[in-house]
Protein backbone atom coordinates (compact mmCIF):
# COMPACT_ATOMS: atom_id res chain seq x y z
CA UNK A 1 0.00 0.00 0.00
CA UNK A 2 2.80 2.39 0.86
CA UNK A 3 4.44 1.64 -2.48
CA UNK A 4 1.15 2.46 -4.20
CA UNK A 5 1.02 5.67 -2.19
CA UNK A 6 4.53 6.53 -3.38
CA UNK A 7 3.56 6.02 -7.01
CA UNK A 8 0.28 7.94 -6.66
CA UNK A 9 2.00 10.78 -4.82
CA UNK A 10 4.62 11.12 -7.58
CA UNK A 11 1.96 11.08 -10.31
CA UNK A 12 -0.07 13.63 -8.35
CA UNK A 13 2.93 15.92 -8.15
CA UNK A 14 3.51 15.58 -11.88
CA UNK A 15 -0.17 16.30 -12.60
CA UNK A 16 -0.16 19.40 -10.41
CA UNK A 17 2.99 20.49 -12.23
CA UNK A 18 1.31 19.81 -15.58
CA UNK A 19 -1.77 21.76 -14.47
CA UNK A 20 0.47 24.69 -13.49
CA UNK A 21 2.16 24.63 -16.93
CA UNK A 22 -1.21 24.36 -18.71
CA UNK A 23 -2.56 27.33 -16.76
CA UNK A 24 0.58 29.21 -17.73
CA UNK A 25 0.08 28.27 -21.40
CA UNK A 26 -3.53 29.41 -21.11
CA UNK A 27 -2.31 32.85 -20.10
CA UNK A 28 0.35 32.93 -22.84
CA UNK A 29 -1.81 31.54 -25.67
CA UNK A 30 -5.08 33.10 -24.41
CA UNK A 31 -6.96 29.93 -25.39
CA UNK A 32 -9.83 29.22 -22.99
CA UNK A 33 -9.73 25.53 -23.78
CA UNK A 34 -6.34 25.23 -22.12
CA UNK A 35 -7.78 26.54 -18.86
CA UNK A 36 -10.49 23.88 -18.99
CA UNK A 37 -7.86 21.19 -19.65
CA UNK A 38 -5.72 22.54 -16.80
CA UNK A 39 -8.68 22.38 -14.40
CA UNK A 40 -9.36 18.84 -15.56
CA UNK A 41 -5.73 17.82 -15.02
CA UNK A 42 -5.85 19.40 -11.55
CA UNK A 43 -9.08 17.50 -10.82
CA UNK A 44 -7.47 14.21 -11.91
CA UNK A 45 -4.49 15.12 -9.73
CA UNK A 46 -6.86 15.68 -6.82
CA UNK A 47 -8.48 12.26 -7.35
CA UNK A 48 -5.08 10.54 -7.40
CA UNK A 49 -3.98 12.66 -4.45
CA UNK A 50 -7.03 11.38 -2.55
CA UNK A 51 -6.03 7.86 -3.59
CA UNK A 52 -2.50 8.46 -2.29
CA UNK A 53 -3.83 9.64 1.06
CA UNK A 54 -6.18 6.63 1.29
CA UNK A 55 -3.32 4.23 0.45
CA UNK A 56 -1.12 5.83 3.09
CA UNK A 57 -3.95 5.60 5.60
CA UNK A 58 -4.43 1.89 4.86
CA UNK A 59 -0.67 1.24 4.77
CA UNK A 60 -0.06 3.05 8.06
CA UNK A 61 -3.20 1.66 9.68
CA UNK A 62 -4.30 5.10 10.81
CA UNK A 63 -5.33 8.51 9.52
CA UNK A 64 -2.49 9.94 7.44
CA UNK A 65 -2.45 13.28 9.24
CA UNK A 66 0.17 13.01 11.92
CA UNK A 67 3.58 14.23 10.78
CA UNK A 68 5.16 17.00 8.71
CA UNK A 69 4.89 15.10 5.43
CA UNK A 70 1.32 13.98 5.96
CA UNK A 71 0.13 17.40 7.01
CA UNK A 72 1.90 19.13 4.10
CA UNK A 73 0.40 16.76 1.54
CA UNK A 74 -2.98 17.18 3.28
CA UNK A 75 -2.61 20.97 3.09
CA UNK A 76 -1.90 20.75 -0.67
CA UNK A 77 -4.94 18.46 -1.01
CA UNK A 78 -7.15 20.94 0.88
CA UNK A 79 -5.94 23.86 -1.22
CA UNK A 80 -6.46 21.91 -4.43
CA UNK A 81 -9.96 20.89 -3.35
CA UNK A 82 -11.09 24.36 -2.24
CA UNK A 83 -9.60 26.05 -5.33
CA UNK A 84 -11.34 23.56 -7.64
CA UNK A 85 -14.64 24.13 -5.83
CA UNK A 86 -14.25 27.89 -6.33
CA UNK A 87 -13.20 27.45 -9.97
CA UNK A 88 -16.26 25.32 -10.72
CA UNK A 89 -18.82 27.04 -8.53
CA UNK A 90 -17.96 30.59 -9.53
CA UNK A 91 -16.76 29.77 -13.08
CA UNK A 92 -13.38 31.31 -12.42
CA UNK A 93 -10.64 29.26 -14.17
CA UNK A 94 -8.13 32.09 -13.80
CA UNK A 95 -8.02 31.26 -10.08
CA UNK A 96 -6.15 28.10 -11.06
CA UNK A 97 -3.40 30.20 -12.66
CA UNK A 98 -2.57 31.61 -9.25
CA UNK A 99 -3.51 28.63 -7.06
CA UNK A 100 -1.63 25.94 -9.01
CA UNK A 101 1.89 27.28 -8.22
CA UNK A 102 0.97 27.47 -4.52
CA UNK A 103 -0.35 23.90 -4.58
CA UNK A 104 2.81 22.74 -6.35
CA UNK A 105 4.96 24.61 -3.84
CA UNK A 106 3.25 22.98 -0.87
CA UNK A 107 3.27 19.46 -2.33
CA UNK A 108 6.94 20.05 -3.21
CA UNK A 109 7.54 20.95 0.43
CA UNK A 110 5.74 17.71 1.39
CA UNK A 111 8.01 15.73 -0.94
CA UNK A 112 11.06 17.09 0.89
CA UNK A 113 9.83 15.79 4.26
CA UNK A 114 10.59 12.40 5.75
CA UNK A 115 7.94 10.01 4.39
CA UNK A 116 8.69 7.13 6.71
CA UNK A 117 5.62 5.74 8.50
CA UNK A 118 6.29 5.82 12.22
CA UNK A 119 4.24 4.50 15.09
CA UNK A 120 2.12 7.08 16.83
CA UNK A 121 2.81 8.18 20.36
CA UNK A 122 -0.06 7.43 22.75
CA UNK A 123 -1.35 11.03 22.82
CA UNK A 124 -1.93 10.94 19.06
CA UNK A 125 -3.89 7.70 19.17
CA UNK A 126 -7.26 9.39 19.45
CA UNK A 127 -10.38 9.77 17.33
CA UNK A 128 -10.08 13.52 17.84
CA UNK A 129 -7.02 13.50 15.59
CA UNK A 130 -9.23 13.04 12.51
CA UNK A 131 -11.57 15.92 13.39
CA UNK A 132 -8.78 18.23 14.49
CA UNK A 133 -6.46 17.81 11.51
CA UNK A 134 -9.06 17.41 8.75
CA UNK A 135 -10.71 20.69 9.78
CA UNK A 136 -7.39 22.51 9.79
CA UNK A 137 -6.65 21.21 6.30
CA UNK A 138 -9.91 22.72 4.99
CA UNK A 139 -9.22 25.93 6.96
CA UNK A 140 -5.72 26.34 5.58
CA UNK A 141 -6.92 25.43 2.08
CA UNK A 142 -9.60 28.13 2.30
CA UNK A 143 -7.16 30.72 3.62
CA UNK A 144 -4.82 29.76 0.77
CA UNK A 145 -7.60 30.49 -1.71
CA UNK A 146 -8.42 33.80 0.01
CA UNK A 147 -4.73 34.72 -0.23
CA UNK A 148 -4.76 33.96 -3.95
CA UNK A 149 -7.97 35.96 -4.42
CA UNK A 150 -6.56 38.87 -2.45
CA UNK A 151 -3.40 38.82 -4.56
CA UNK A 152 -5.50 38.62 -7.76
CA UNK A 153 -7.54 41.57 -6.55
CA UNK A 154 -4.41 43.64 -6.00
CA UNK A 155 -3.07 42.67 -9.44
CA UNK A 156 -6.41 43.35 -11.07
CA UNK A 157 -6.09 47.03 -10.26
CA UNK A 158 -3.20 47.21 -12.72
CA UNK A 159 -5.05 45.44 -15.53
CA UNK A 160 -6.43 47.42 -18.43
CA UNK A 161 -10.15 47.32 -19.15
CA UNK A 162 -11.03 44.95 -21.97
CA UNK A 163 -7.71 43.08 -21.75
CA UNK A 164 -7.44 39.30 -21.61
CA UNK A 165 -6.96 39.43 -17.83
CA UNK A 166 -9.90 41.76 -17.44
CA UNK A 167 -12.17 39.37 -19.33
CA UNK A 168 -11.11 36.30 -17.40
CA UNK A 169 -11.08 37.72 -13.90
CA UNK A 170 -14.37 38.53 -12.19
CA UNK A 171 -15.23 42.07 -11.24
CA UNK A 172 -13.49 43.55 -8.21
CA UNK A 173 -16.71 43.38 -6.25
CA UNK A 174 -17.09 39.69 -7.00
CA UNK A 175 -13.41 38.96 -6.26
CA UNK A 176 -13.82 40.72 -2.96
CA UNK A 177 -16.90 38.65 -2.15
CA UNK A 178 -15.18 35.40 -3.14
CA UNK A 179 -12.26 36.25 -0.85
CA UNK A 180 -14.80 36.97 1.89
CA UNK A 181 -16.46 33.61 1.25
CA UNK A 182 -13.18 31.73 1.45
CA UNK A 183 -12.14 33.57 4.61
CA UNK A 184 -15.57 32.76 6.10
CA UNK A 185 -15.12 29.08 5.32
CA UNK A 186 -11.56 29.13 6.66
CA UNK A 187 -12.53 30.93 9.86
CA UNK A 188 -15.37 28.54 10.57
CA UNK A 189 -13.12 25.53 10.06
CA UNK A 190 -10.28 27.11 12.05
CA UNK A 191 -12.76 27.59 14.91
CA UNK A 192 -13.66 23.89 14.65
CA UNK A 193 -9.94 23.08 14.67
CA UNK A 194 -9.26 25.12 17.80
CA UNK A 195 -12.29 23.73 19.63
CA UNK A 196 -11.67 20.08 18.71
CA UNK A 197 -8.02 20.58 19.65
CA UNK A 198 -9.04 22.00 23.02
CA UNK A 199 -11.40 19.07 23.72
CA UNK A 200 -8.68 16.62 22.72
CA UNK A 201 -6.04 18.40 24.85
CA UNK A 202 -8.41 18.26 27.84
CA UNK A 203 -8.71 14.50 27.42
CA UNK A 204 -5.05 13.84 26.69
CA UNK A 205 -3.26 16.32 28.96
CA UNK A 206 -5.99 17.51 31.30
CA UNK A 207 -5.75 21.09 30.05
CA UNK A 208 -7.79 22.47 27.18
CA UNK A 209 -5.59 25.51 26.70
CA UNK A 210 -1.89 25.64 27.56
CA UNK A 211 -0.68 28.66 25.57
CA UNK A 212 1.44 26.29 23.53
CA UNK A 213 3.00 28.22 20.57
CA UNK A 214 0.79 26.39 18.05
CA UNK A 215 -2.33 27.19 20.07
CA UNK A 216 -1.23 30.79 20.53
CA UNK A 217 -0.52 31.29 16.83
CA UNK A 218 -3.82 29.65 15.88
CA UNK A 219 -5.45 32.23 18.13
CA UNK A 220 -3.46 35.02 16.45
CA UNK A 221 -4.61 33.75 13.04
CA UNK A 222 -8.20 33.51 14.29
CA UNK A 223 -8.09 37.07 15.64
CA UNK A 224 -6.50 38.38 12.41
CA UNK A 225 -9.30 36.97 10.26
CA UNK A 226 -11.92 38.07 12.80
CA UNK A 227 -10.56 41.60 12.45
CA UNK A 228 -10.81 41.23 8.67
CA UNK A 229 -14.51 40.37 9.00
CA UNK A 230 -15.14 43.16 11.52
CA UNK A 231 -13.49 45.76 9.35
CA UNK A 232 -15.59 44.62 6.39
CA UNK A 233 -18.87 44.82 8.26
CA UNK A 234 -18.32 47.90 10.39
CA UNK A 235 -15.72 50.04 8.62
CA UNK A 236 -16.73 49.11 5.10
CA UNK A 237 -13.28 47.68 4.37
CA UNK A 238 -13.87 46.21 0.96
CA UNK A 239 -11.60 45.97 -2.00
CA UNK A 240 -7.96 46.83 -1.60
CA UNK A 241 -7.83 47.03 2.20
CA UNK A 242 -9.62 43.69 2.54
CA UNK A 243 -7.34 42.14 -0.09
CA UNK A 244 -4.25 43.29 1.81
CA UNK A 245 -5.72 41.81 5.00
CA UNK A 246 -6.36 38.47 3.25
CA UNK A 247 -2.71 38.37 2.17
CA UNK A 248 -1.45 39.30 5.66
CA UNK A 249 -3.78 36.71 7.23
CA UNK A 250 -2.21 33.99 5.12
CA UNK A 251 1.25 35.02 6.30
CA UNK A 252 -0.03 34.28 9.84
CA UNK A 253 -1.33 30.91 8.59
CA UNK A 254 2.03 30.03 7.09
CA UNK A 255 3.85 31.07 10.26
CA UNK A 256 1.45 28.98 12.35
CA UNK A 257 2.06 26.06 10.04
CA UNK A 258 5.81 26.23 9.28
CA UNK A 259 7.27 28.99 11.47
CA UNK A 260 5.96 27.63 14.76
CA UNK A 261 7.16 24.10 13.96
CA UNK A 262 10.66 25.23 13.10
CA UNK A 263 11.19 28.20 15.42
CA UNK A 264 8.96 27.65 18.45
CA UNK A 265 8.89 24.01 19.51
CA UNK A 266 6.08 23.00 21.85
CA UNK A 267 3.41 20.38 22.33
CA UNK A 268 2.80 20.28 18.55
CA UNK A 269 6.43 19.69 17.56
CA UNK A 270 5.48 16.46 15.77
CA UNK A 271 3.23 18.20 13.21
Amino acid sequence: MLQAENVLFTITMLLYFAAMILYFLFVVSKKDKLAAVASLVQAVGLVLHTGALICRGIGAGRLPLTNYYEFATGFAWGLSLVSLVFIRKYRFPMLGVFAAPLIFLIIGYAAMQNREVKDLMPALRSNWLGFHVSTVIVAYGSFGVSFVLGAVFLLRERMKDGSFWDKHIPSREKLDLLAYRSVSLGLLFLSFTIITGAIWAERAWGSYWSWDPKETWSLITWITYTMYLHFRVTRGWHGKQAAVFAVVGFICVMFTYIGVNTLLPGLHSYA
Binding site: W211, P213, T216, W217, L219, I220, I223, T224, H230
Partner: peptide
Protein backbone atom coordinates in the same frame (compact mmCIF):
# COMPACT_ATOMS: atom_id res chain seq x y z
CA UNK B 1 -11.05 50.63 20.31
CA UNK B 2 -12.19 46.99 20.14
CA UNK B 3 -9.95 46.39 17.13
CA UNK B 4 -7.06 48.09 18.93
CA UNK B 5 -7.58 45.73 21.88
CA UNK B 6 -7.62 42.71 19.59
CA UNK B 7 -4.43 43.98 18.00
CA UNK B 8 -2.83 44.31 21.44
CA UNK B 9 -3.91 40.76 22.34
CA UNK B 10 -2.18 39.61 19.16
CA UNK B 11 1.00 41.49 20.09
CA UNK B 12 0.88 39.94 23.58
CA UNK B 13 0.45 36.49 22.03
CA UNK B 14 3.43 37.05 19.73
CA UNK B 15 5.57 38.08 22.72
CA UNK B 16 4.28 35.18 24.80
CA UNK B 17 5.14 32.66 22.12
CA UNK B 18 8.45 34.19 21.03
Amino acid sequence: FGMLLLGLVCVACVLGSA
